[in-house]
Design a protein around this nucleic acid. Structure first.
Length: 451
DNA sequence: TCTGGGGTCCTAGGACCC
DNA sequence: TCTGGGGTCCTAGGACCC
């Protein structure tokens, strides 16, 4: 597994495009009174500027830095070039963000073997190619036997570094490290672990699984027990389906005018609706997020009878949710989101199959009366590129047997297969139009007993 | 006049169903 | 008379990531 991380990405793009910034401290992020730092160039880091620091503090530490609000189109374009370069190596590339990705080298075609020297040379050439296609951006690469180890390794020689962790040396590498280096272990988990005497991975290793689950809960406890032992078999998932779409903003001054708050929700709802439509998605759960003057953060949500991508429906629902909150002290952040995403094809199935008259109390559900009957024109639906392979859908493959959809997109479907004897098995990717890949249906959907 | 914006995943409790 | 258990869906909040 290979993990690639572009160094100080946003700042590096700015320095590339504006030569006068090269060699100088550059800070990209919110430039307003309530902004925070997204990325600081290494020159700015020398003055103690860090990601997530308030821009106010960054200005105090490094007043002569260039403070920029960011050009996301340029970042996206550059990111795309990098991801394409990675996909030329292996079909199994999983972007984690604009500046990070995993590459499954076991699926790389032009890699003769996975020996240490071979992989090291390959990764060096990859770094050179990234430098080329980005017009001079450096990347740090980590290689190891799992996602976890690759990710840890890419952090060890930053910037512009390469670390390959030889198989069998993982646990010795991890033991002296602080638990906070483990992805998923943030400040709250570090504090909980500190209270039970755990500071390093070596300490973590000594805690039983039961104890860890008691301290951190099921999911986190189990996964940390495994990671402490360098056990990690998570596959590369090339394309994940979006699960939610949201828009939020923090305002320079706290807002109190309820008409103004409602107007903001209306505009944000239109933004969300446009993005949903652009991706061919709709969702059933509308939520708002409200951060009050004292930073307490509230969320409220409402699940509709059927998915929507309609701006007016989202806005009406969002405004109703806000009406039940006390915002008299002032609001510093307001946001709208839609979750429970489905595609238009499912939407159509839903609304044509489940039409059982009006809801009991129409005032409970602002959409019950107005919700239109989804997409009528099949040609139009086709244009919207429906998502044919919803995650979790059962499928079968002529060669590999039965499984379920792990992810899909860009014409590729990733399937996790299950065998009766071994349980969850390997993950494989296929072209979405692979004739050997079939949607799978239960043998007799009508038979389940009616109790 | 500390503390962004876009996400994901998990937990816990209550409603509801069988 | 006493007292289920499993499962799903929904809501709110929190931790975490880049």
């Amino acid at each position: 597994m290979l993990h690639l991380d572009l160094d100080a990405f946003f700042a590096a793009v700015e320095q590339r495009d504006k030569p006068s910034l090269r060699g100088k401290p550059v800070v990209v992020g919110g430039v307003g009174g309530r902004g925070v730092v997204a990325t600081a160039s290494y020159e700015a880091r020398a003055f103690g500027v860090r990601s997530a620091m308030s821009t106010r503090e960054a200005r105090a530490r490094c007043p002569h830095a260039a403070f920029l609000s960011g050009r996301f189109d340029a970042y996206r374009t550059t990111s795309r070039a990098v991801m394409e370069t990675l996909r030329a190596c292996s079909p199994l590339v999983e972007p984690l963000s604009l500046d990070e990705a995993f590459v499954d080298l076991a699926a790389a075609e032009d890699l003769p073997d996975l020996e240490l020297d071979t992989v090291t040379g390959y990764a060096e050439r990859l770094r050179a190619r990234v430098l080329e296609v980005t017009g001079g951006l450096t990347a740090s690469i980590g290689v190891g036997t799992s996602k976890f180890i690759a990710k840890i390794a890419s952090d060890l020689d930053k910037p512009d570094g390469l670390v390959v962790v030889p198989p069998g040396t993982e646990r010795d590498l991890l033991r002296p490290m602080r638990v906070g280096v483990i992805p998923g272990v943030g400040p709250a988990t570090v504090e909980r672990l500190r209270r039970v005497g755990v500071h390093t991975v070596a300490d973590l290793e000594r805690i039983s699984r039961d104890e860890l689950v008691r301290v951190l809960g099921q999911a986190h406890g189990q996964s940390l027990h495994a990671l402490a032992r360098a056990e990690d078999d998570r596959p590369v998932v090339p394309e994940r389906e979006a699960k939610s779409v949201s828009v939020e903003a923090t305002y320079e001054h706290d807002l109190t005018d309820r008409r103004q708050l409602a107007a903001i929700l209306t505009r944000q709802s239109a933004d969300v609706a446009r993005r949903l439509a652009g991706s061919g998605l709709s969702g059933r759960t509308v939520s708002i997020k409200v951060r009050l003057y004292d930073f307490t953060t509230l969320s409220r949500s409402s699940t509709l009878a059927s998915p929507t991508e309609d701006a007016a429906t989202i806005a009406r629902t969002a405004r109703t949710l806000l009406e039940n909150l006390d915002t008299s002290g002032g609001v510093r952040l307001l946001g709208v989101g839609v979750a429970g995403l489905a595609d238009w094809v499912q939407d159509e199935l839903f609304t044509t199959g489940d039409d059982d008259g009006p809801a009991d109390d129409p005032t409970d559900d602002p959409t019950a009366l107005e919700e239109p009957a989804a997409v009528e024109d099949p040609a139009e639906a086709g244009v919207r590129a429906p998502r044919l392979w919803p995650p979790g859908a059962d499928v079968e493959h002529t060669e590999h047997g039965r499984g379920w959809v792990w992810g899909s997109g860009r014409g590729v479907v990733t399937v996790r297969f299950e065998t009766a004897t071994t349980g969850p098995g390997p993950v494989r990717s296929f072209p979405a139009d692979d004739p050997d890949l079939h949607r799978w249906r239960p043998p007799d959907p009508a038979s389940p007993q009616s109790h």
